[in-house]
């Protein structure tokens, strides 16, 4: 399993790429919402598509498609996987 060591914000992920959640910098209700949806450290998440104007972005996580705004996705740190061998 090859991995890059770089930590990026989730918002920078290009559609089609897969990554693993490292940490959440969000706060308050949104943080809890995101955690409850199963977006916890270690979770695999795949960027699926951007909205017609580039925002929000839809992510596939635990078999569910969830749309997040870029401001919020910027506060989620992820580590991009080099090869997509791990499917979400």
């Amino acid at each position: 399993m090859k991995k890059t060591q770089r930590i990026d914000p989730l918002a920078d992920l290009a559609p089609g790429s897969v990554c693993r959640i490292v940490s959440l910098e969000l706060s308050g209700l949104l943080r809890r919402r995101i955690l409850d949806l199963g977006i916890v450290p270690g979770t695999l998440i795949r960027c699926i598509r951007r909205g017609p104007s580039g925002d929000p972005t839809a992510y596939l996580v635990r078999e569910t498609l969830i749309a997040l705004r870029s401001e919020d996705a910027a506060q989620i740190s992820v580590r991009t996987l080099l090869n997509g061998e791990e499917c979400v």
């Binding site: 409850d36 949806l37 199963g38 635990r62 078999e63 569910t64």
Partner: peptide, 9 residues
């Protein structure tokens, strides 16, 4: 059943 993990939570 289509998203078991989130529901098992």
């Amino acid at each position: 059943a289509t998203c078991l993990e989130r529901n098992l939570n």
